[in-house]
């Protein structure tokens, strides 16, 4: 057990700590087929983020990933309504390659909205290595943009084998492993050791006590980022789990905001956000 730390005490006392902002780099928005979402809208998200002290939520609207007839318009509308705390990943569904090409071609029209791309390969049932994803990867590679991948251990679509292939192919894009190749923790650690542009994201990782301690013990905390799948999951719950892990306050700060600021630094100045 670690000693109760200043940061833990401060979060428990006040719920938010002004000198320790939180960047959630794995969020969503809107309703979803398999569960009741309590807070679906951007307005509700903005209220929650403000209350909890989240400086920035980077999300991809469920519609952009699951409803091609709505698509990325939902991302654009949400960010433009609440630009102080929201940015989006441009959602890529390679089942619709023409739409992928169009979304990538118009990416620059929405520099106020997008920070990178999101792939949900397990759901789309197309591997992250598939050529239909190439336009997004090519732009991410050229601009060193973040690409948030849903990743799950042993998946043929987004497991460790195909992650390794894209990491070998794209050395400049910032590859964020959503769920950290869940359950294949040793493989996730090895990917970070082998590729300087690969990062581990904590959503669902914190379901299992001890994994974060393993990550930090083997890798340090500079390549680990905070994410929640909001609005699926609660920010306070996830903040509490990171604070409960046997890691230092310095590690927590890296995870909560320092690493995200570096990742986003090439895209926009996150510190310039005016929201309090």
């Amino acid at each position: 057990m670690k000693k109760t730390t200043d940061l833990k005490k401060a979060f428990f006392a006040r719920g938010r700590v002004p000198d320790c902002p939180i960047y959630d780099l794995h969020g969503h928005m809107g309703p979803s087929y398999g569960l009741h979402i309590n807070r679906e809208t951007a307005a509700q998200a903005d209220t929650v983020l403000k209350r909890v002290g989240i400086r920035l939520l980077v999300f991809c609207h469920h519609a952009a990933l699951m409803a091609p007839d709505i698509g990325n318009a939902a991302n654009i509308k949400a960010v433009r309504a609440f630009p102080d705390r929201l940015r989006a990943y441009c959602g890529i569904n390679p089942n619709y390659p023409d739409q992928v090409k169009k979304d990538v071609a118009t990416f620059d029209r929405y520099t106020d909205v997008y920070v990178g791309f999101k792939l949900l390969a397990d759901y789309h049932a197309i591997p992250i290595t598939d050529p239909r994803n190439e336009p997004a990867w090519a732009l991410a590679e050229a601009r060193a943009l973040p690409v948030l991948l849903h990743t799950w251990g042993n998946s043929v679509y987004d497991g460790q084998t195909v992650i390794r292939k894209v990491a070998e192919r794209y050395t400049q894009a910032k590859i964020l492993l959503g769920h950290s190749c869940h359950s294949c923790w040793d493989e996730a650690i090895q990917l970070v050791k082998d590729f300087p542009n690969v990062y581990l994201e904590l959503c669902a990782v914190m379901d299992e006590r001890g994994i974060l301690e393993r990550f930090v013990g083997e890798l340090g905390s500079e390549r680990i980022i905070f994410g929640t799948d909001y609005p699926w999951f609660s920010h306070h719950y996830y903040i509490g789990t990171v604070l409960g892990a046997v890691i230092s306050d310095d590690d927590c700060r890296n995870i909560f905001y320092r690493n995200a600021e570096k990742i986003l630094g090439g895209v926009f100045n996150a510190k310039s956000l005016t929201a309090k």
Binding site: K8, F11, F12, G15, R51, V52, M206, D207, E208, R209, S234, H236, Y237, Y238, I239, G240, T241, L243, G244, A245
Partner: peptide, 18 residues
């Protein structure tokens, strides 16, 4: 749900629930 989960997650969520 200890030992599977970190107690601090559920505790912080209740302590600062709206």
């Amino acid at each position: 749900n200890f030992p599977e989960r970190y107690p601090e997650g559920a505790m912080l969520a209740i302590q600062h629930a709206a």
